[in-house]
Write a protein that binds this DNA or RNA. Structure first.
Length: 803
RNA sequence: GCGGGCGUGGCGAAAUUGGUAGACGCAAGGGACUUAAAAUCCCUCGGCCGCAAGGCCUUGCCGGUUCGAGCCCGGCCGCCCGCACCA
């Protein structure tokens, strides 16, 4: 799709930058190293070599002079430099945090790599571990990232909505409940966060996360609490496990006072359903109006007090004993709040708590800071040294890049950088004494968060030349899968803001227009008895049945899925190009489905595209040197078939242009099929006919060029075009030829189409009405009825209403 | 559970956003050419009735608004995606 757009825009006279590069760090290379013994770098560059060849073979019009891989030290040196700049500016922080830890592979796993609570590679149950990690403080920009979404008009709504939900802004109240009686050390009160301050009078307990400092401190002197916390931490972190987990708590020996109800004391629990990383890691529970709190209260016999009354309910009979009520209503059982609506009550509580100095209204975000430390080899080294005397010390900028050691041991799990015999031993940049390098590497999402800027401008000595980068950025058209909707696209937006503050860019938003395209998918084939997946080329399809080519054994045709090596539902680009040519493959992929949807790769489908390539070539071949015989700038008077062809040609120009502009490639292709048919059927051979035919061939060749560039060049040469078609200007539609003198109007009687009216294109309503009433179909279907009304929509339809 | 999207022939899909439903392609069937096959070309192709002209029905289901609904509104059913103990 990107290639079609690039070629089309170039033909329209734009200065087009269409680059390509490789996001090349990451686990797959390291896994391959563990499995095959080859070095990640060797494996990666070899694959790049292969993929570059495949892309070139598909005829992608790419500026290869700008190519790079993110694992090139010439690229990541700038990443290290920017990290140090971010550190200086306070965009980065080192702190302890919980991670998913795979005890077998001995590495941190991303959430996406934890499947049903187990490591995706090792299958071992994942543990929660607290480690010191580097964080990019994306939450500092949460509000800006959220606000700016509204202005990203070139982005699909669903992606913007997903980011909005991911950032998850909520407004509520942060407040402190005072302890009564026994108190934990160094605290007078417990700070909680709530989005439902209106239900404060329904509070019957407080609870903290197992990771909350209060819980941890108490666990140090109480084995029961320690055991409870350990149990919570051992519980699966998968979504499924979380959903099924029973609400459980551990009663602490503390109580807090209700701020507005004299004498009401709330017990304090450690509870397994409280998240430390949201709000303050502590809540008040209102069982009457929250499902989780209700479950918890039912289990521990706590009060369930209704305080929100739904419209139409009677306060004397309304009960939340069985089910909590979470909807809107009016407040009751709540002293000074009684009678208020939910929103007014929220504002009133916040006002009073603020007045008493016990808390404040705040906004909260679901978004968490971006942990970027990975205990892996194949990533960009974090340019930091840990010194016993000086602490955390940045590597001096003139000593960058910190490169990966060429030799490393991949034979066992864990971080090869950490166990490398010499690599981590360096002298402290500050005091010069022996110190240790940071052995973590960056999350690979950092690599992909700024590559577009490097494509635009790639000086050797700094990340970008800002002026050059500004000429190109923001990216006019970004194309990618919807799977990037949150992570990559959010990180890149954030990173651009950081880069802007460091002076490397002047845009906040890196991608002006975003299109989320579908994937090429393929049916899966499996030999159930042998228990193995089969490549499509090893399967013989005959109507409903499928068999193995080698043994003839029956084959089960499975789901149509994203192509993956493990299920072997892949087709090698080389083989496609060999069998059908790159153009047929390009044409088919674009023709079969709307571009945002997946396209199923089928042999029959490519064959259809292949036939079309042949038909176009036949037409060009039959029109050899047609352009040399006429002057396209001097259109003769035409009528009859020649005029019809010219109209079809100019209609196609207008239609295809509009379709490409709006990413409707499948429709553009449908139009091109029609144009090909029109050209092939055209037979007139007089002067006007020769002109119309030459014009049609010239236009057709230029219109197909973005889709089938190789074919287009051959056709261009055959019909006698000057130079290369890729240098020829995009055709312009002649507006006069888009208008018709006579149009066909559907004629309805009582809303059902009964006939067609042939009317002058410029006929007014009265004239059309007269024509309609004279039509025999009206006489027939309105027979015995009175004509009540005639609705004329010029250029569209006529409807005669009779009853 | 919350949020979003989508349901149209045997299949992939169109429908100028309220105006002839099924463009275009795939598959299938029939025919021409050929000794034969491939390729190519022509025809048919949502369902029912009819020799035909033509008629009736049809966009997941039920109802509504409208001269007119695949499109708008209400209620169901089904599928897909995102988030998910977020207080």
């Amino acid at each position: 799709m990107g290639d079609v757009v690039a070629r089309y825009k170039r033909a329209r006279g734009y200065n087009v930058l269409h680059p390509m590069g490789w996001d090349a760090f990451g686990m797959p290379a390291e896994n391959a190293a563990m499995q095959t013994g080859s070095h990640p770098a060797e494996w990666t560059y070899k694959n790049i070599e292969i993929m570059r060849g495949q892309l070139k073979r598909m005829g992608l019009a790419i500026d290869w002079s700008r190519e790079f891989a993110t694992c090139d030290p010439e690229y990541y040196v700038h990443e290290q430099r920017m990290f140090l700049e971010f550190l200086e500016k306070g965009f980065v922080e080192r702190r302890r945090s919980f991670v998913n830890w795979d005890p077998v592979d001995q590495t941190v796993l991303a959430n996406e790599q934890v499947i049903d609570g187990k490591g995706w590679r090792s299958g071992a149950p994942v543990e929660r571990r607290e480690l010191s990690q580097w964080f990019l403080k994306i939450t500092d920009r949460a509000d800006d990232l959220l606000e700016a979404l509204d202005r990203l008009e070139g982005w699909p709504d669903n992606v913007r909505l997903m980011q909005k939900n991911w950032i998850g802004k909520s407004s509520g109240l942060k407040m402190t409940f005072r302890y009564v009686g026994e108190k934990p050390a160094d605290a007078d009160g417990l700070e909680i966060y709530t989005t439902r301050p209106d239900t404060l009078f329904g509070a019957s307990f407080c609870a903290v996360s197992p990771d909350h400092p209060l819980a941890k401190a108490y666990a140090e002197k109480d084995e029961g609490a320690a055991a409870f916390i350990a149990e919570c931490q051992a519980a699966g972190t998968s979504e499924e496990a979380i959903e099924r987990a029973e609400k459980k708590g551990f009663r602490l020996p503390y109580e807090v006072a209700h701020p507005f109800v004299e004498g009401r004391r709330l017990p304090v629990f450690i509870a397994n359903f409280i998240l430390m990383h949201y709000g303050t890691g502590a809540i008040f529970g209102c069982p009457g109006h929250d499902q989780r709190d209700h479950d918890f209260a039912a289990k521990y016999g706590l009060d369930i007090i209704p305080v929100v009354l739904p419209a139409g309910e009677d306060a004397r009979t309304f009960s939340v004993a069985e089910e909590p009520y979470v909807g809107p209503g009016s407040i009751f059982n709540s002293g000074f709040l009684d009678g208020m609506g939910v929103e007014d009550a929220k504002a009133e509580i916040i006002r009073r708590i603020e007045e008493r100095g016990e808390g404040e209204g705040t906004t909260n975000y679901r978004l968490r800071d971006w942990g970027v430390s990975r205990q892996r080899y194949w990533g960009c080294p974090i340019p930091i040294v840990h010194c016993e005397t000086c602490g955390v010390v940045p590597v001096l900028k003139d000593q960058l890049p910190v490169t990966l050691p060429g030799e490393a041991d991949f034979s066992e799990p864990g971080n090869p950088l950490d166990r490398h015999p010499t690599w981590k031993h360096v002298n402290c940049p500050a005091c010069g004494r022996p110190a240790l390098r940071e052995t973590d590497t960056f999350d690979t999402f950092i690599d992909s968060s700024w590559y577009f800027a490097r494509f635009a401008s790639a000086p050797e000595d700094r990340p970008t030349d800002p002026e050059t980068a500004d000429y190109w950025l923001p990216v006019d058209q970004y194309i990618g899968g919807v799977e990037h909707a949150i992570l990559h696209l959010l990180y890149a937006r954030y990173y651009s803001r950081n880069m802007k503050e460091c002076g490397w860019l002047s845009v906040d938003e890196p991608f002006a227009n975003l299109f989320t395209q579908g994937m090429v998918v393929h049916a899966t084939y499996r030999d159930e008895t042998a228990g193995e997946w089969l490549f499509p080329e090893d399967v013989k399809l005959d109507g409903e049945t499928a068999t193995r080519r080698d043994t003839g054994a029956p084959v089960t045709v499975g789901a149509i899925e994203k192509m993956s090596k493990s299920k072997k539902n892949v087709v090698a680009p080389e083989e496609i190009a060999e069998a059908y040519g790159a153009d047929a493959a390009r044409w088919f992929m674009l023709s079969d489905s709307p571009p945002e949807r997946d396209v199923e790769w089928t042999a029959a489908g490519v064959e259809g595209a292949w036939r079309l390539v042949g038909r176009i070539w036949d037409a060009a071949d039959a029109g050899r040197d047609a352009l040399k015989a006429v002057d396209l700038a001097k259109a003769p008077e035409t009528d009859g078939p020649a005029l019809d062809l010219r109209r079809a040609v100019h209609g196609a120009v207008a239609g295809v242009t509009d379709d490409i502009e709006h990413f409707r490639f499948n429709k553009a292709i449908a139009r091109l099929y029609e144009l090909v048919t029109a050209v092939r059927k055209f037979e007139t051979s007089d002067d006007a006919g020769a002109f119309a035919r030459a014009e049609a061939l010239s236009v057709l060749t230029r219109l197909i060029a973005p889709f089938t560039p190789h074919l287009a060049e051959e056709c261009w040469e055959a019909i006698g075009g000057e130079g290369l078609v890729c240098d020829a200007p995009w055709p312009e539609a002649d507006k006069a030829l888009l208008q018709k003198d006579v149009i066909l109007l559907p004629l309805q009687v009582n809303g059902k189409t009964r006939s067609q009216l042939e009317a002058p294109a410029d006929a007014d309503k009265d004239a059309i009405e007269k024509l309609a009433l004279a039509d025999p179909a009206v006489a027939r279907f309105a027979e015995g009825k009175t004509i009540r009304k005639v609705i004329v929509v010029p250029g569209r339809i006529v409807n005669v209403v009779a009853s």
